[in-house]
Design a binder for these strands. Structure first.
Lengths: 212, 212
DNA sequence: GCTCAAACGGACGCGGGCGTCCGTTACGGT
DNA sequence: ACCGTAACGGACGCCCGCGTCCGTTTGAGC
């Protein structure tokens, strides 16, 4: 939200701004926060200077770019918290966060603070963690969640989830789903079982991966 | 293995070479493959040119640096394969790989081919995967491994394990152990349970993480 | 202790990413 | 149609990492 209360942007400027945000969603979503600003500019069909005029620093662009996903994430958490079945809510919130992260590497990076100084997704994380803590309490009492689960375990598996990011998008989404299922399986109180989603083929992805 | 069959290095050269490899193990182990060569040189107390004379390119240094870990890894896999209890072997190999990766970010990066062009840990991976496939077959037949497990699931969880790398070393090792335990828990055929290792505190690690 | 080649390391060139400057373009109000 | 200004974008400076060059140092054989 870069303050444009001052003057209602000129038409071409508004246009470019929109195209930049579109490009940013695509580029950062696909390549992660490491993607160069120039790439966004190129894809938006504008010069670097234009991009930097609209978003003085990379962090500004990122904040704006992922505002939508942040909202989706908050909503998911709120709804999960309202779920009468705490175990279902718990599972759902894990699945949804993983899904969001799989669909946008950039959002995953930002949410997990790969660039800590960049922005304060800390608030979102805090909220999610508190919600999960509450869900976990209830799910454990309901006997569905394993008793030795602690909230840090969610952080653990979400941090680990980032390891799946360096993978082509299609494989990534499938991998993410199966991963989430395994995580839920691991967190489940011993007893009941449910089938996993289909396996993801990843052996090929290993040799063709990006750096960071 | 840079061919020094030609001339038996001068004493200071041999000394420097050893110090460089020491420094490389520390630096790459702690900071991952992304660590600058200069950092290794500084830590070894030599100039960049000296470093590059001993190891013409970064990949050469890396190959040499992680030769030891590769050997450990191969041994672990071989022993696991020889274990009369396939489920125990299966669990052990997962724990050992995770442990190795947790103790050396660089080795983890290399093993998971974060820099694909860098070197051919592909062979090690292939070997490990074949071994695990065999262990899995036996463990499944013994009814200890869940029937819907596929070998790609091991790739999946090991790729995910890389997500734990951007963490201070102490937390990383603890996190890695708990992660491995959860993974084994998830892979276990429904039925028996075993206690997890202690939880790792990670919430703090989120805000203080390195890029990559 | 002298000599000579092996080994060293500071300084350099190159590429790439971030953010900025300034001359040029084009919107939009009259 | 015309003008003023917002908006544009190519070119620039800066930093940092990789790998190299060349003048200097130093080990080791005599």
């Amino acid at each position: 939200m870069t303050a444009e209360v001052t003057h209602p942007l000129r038409s071409d400027a508004r246009d470019n701004r929109a195209r930049i945000l579109d490009a940013a969603r695509t580029v950062f979503g696909e390549e992660g926060l490491g993607a160069p600003m120039r790439e966004v500019a190129r894809r938006a069909g504008v010069g670097p200077a234009t991009l930097y005029r609209h978003f003085p620093a990379k962090r500004d662009l990122l904040t704006e770019t992922f505002a939508e996903q942040r909202r989706v994430c908050r909503t998911a958490v709120r709804e999960a918290l309202a779920d009468p079945d705490p175990w279902h809510g718990f599972r759902t919130v894990i699945e949804q966060i993983c899904e969001l992260h799989a669909h946008s590497r950039g959002f995953a990076d930002a949410f997990m603070a790969a660039f800590p100084e960049v922005m304060d997704f800390a608030a979102d994380r805090e909220q999610s963690l508190r919600a999960v803590a509450e869900l976990a309490r209830r799910a454990r009492e309901a006997g569905r969640l394993r008793p030795d689960f602690v909230v840090d375990d969610l952080v653990l598996v979400l941090m680990a989830h980032r390891g799946l990011q360096d993978t082509p998008r299609d494989a990534r989404v499938a991998a993410s789903r199966r991963y989430a299922a395994y995580v839920i399986e691991a967190f489940r109180a011993p007893g009941a079982v449910t089938p996993l989603p289909p396996a993801a083929r990843l052996a090929g992805a290993l040799t063709r991966t990006t750096q960071r």
